[in-house]
């Protein structure tokens, strides 16, 4: 099937929210975000199956992470400064509360947790980790910051009965 994409997302496509929503402002209810994400997942899974859908979410998250890093974060900071900046911005945008559990800068290997996660915190137990989009998002941020590819894997998730999302983040050595 020949695909001719007409759209290529850029940060500016988010538009001038202040201008467009002078009364309602920049925030919305988390339920609305999840409504869109999970209905989208529902439709995509029906058309493409769960595995392909996960790939779509990871890819979309990756693109979002790259754009987020380029436009909302200060990539010139050292790792400590960058982590603090990232945590601050994730909180500012209501994405989640980032914490670093382990950081091995030599091996470029990290364990991060995101509490009060926008995508999954509070979801009922299903035995399934839902944060594919977050996996891509973190990988995209790390790529934009370091110019290296990272493997991000969600280890714990609300969907699998845990109370915080935990991600292992490891550089992919070429």
């Amino acid at each position: 099937m020949e695909i001719n994409p007409k759209y290529n997302f850029e940060w500016k496509d988010l538009g001038n929210i202040e201008l467009g929503r002078p009364n309602l402002g920049a925030s919305t209810h988390v339920a609305v975000y999840r409504l869109m994400q999970y209905t989208m997942r529902d439709v995509l899974e029906k058309h493409w199956g769960p595995e392909k859908t996960n790939e779509f979410f990871i890819e979309a998250g990756y693109k979002a992470g790259e754009e987020f890093c380029k436009n909302a974060l200060d990539g010139s900071l050292d790792f400590d400064g960058f982590t603090a900046n990232l945590a601050e911005q994730l909180e500012h945008y209501g994405i989640g509360v980032l914490r670093v559990e382990k950081a091995d800068l030599g091996k470029m290997s990290f364990v991060l947790t995101v509490s009060e996660d926008l995508d999954c915190s509070g979801l009922p137990y299903s035995g399934v980790a839902f944060c594919d989009y977050d996996e891509g998002f973190i990988a995209g941020i790390m790529h934009a910051y370091t110019s290296k590819d990272f493997r991000v894997k969600e280890i714990d998730c609300w969907g699998t009965g845990d109370r915080t999302c935990r991600f292992s983040v490891d550089v992919i050595n070429s």
């Binding site: 914490r99 670093v100 559990e101 382990k102 950081a103 364990v111 947790t113 137990y125 035995g127 399934v128 980790a129 280890i155 714990d156 699998t160 009965g161 845990d162 109370r163 915080t164 935990r166």
Partner: peptide, 27 residues
């Protein structure tokens, strides 16, 4: 924690949270 990501372990869920907090505090 016991590596069984797709099975909910009622016994350790809260302790995993404590473990996570302590790891972050150590960092």
């Amino acid at each position: 924690p016991p590596d069984d990501p797709f099975r909910q372990n009622y016994v350790i869920t809260q302790y995993k949270q404590l473990h996570s907090n302590l790891l972050h505090l150590t960092w």
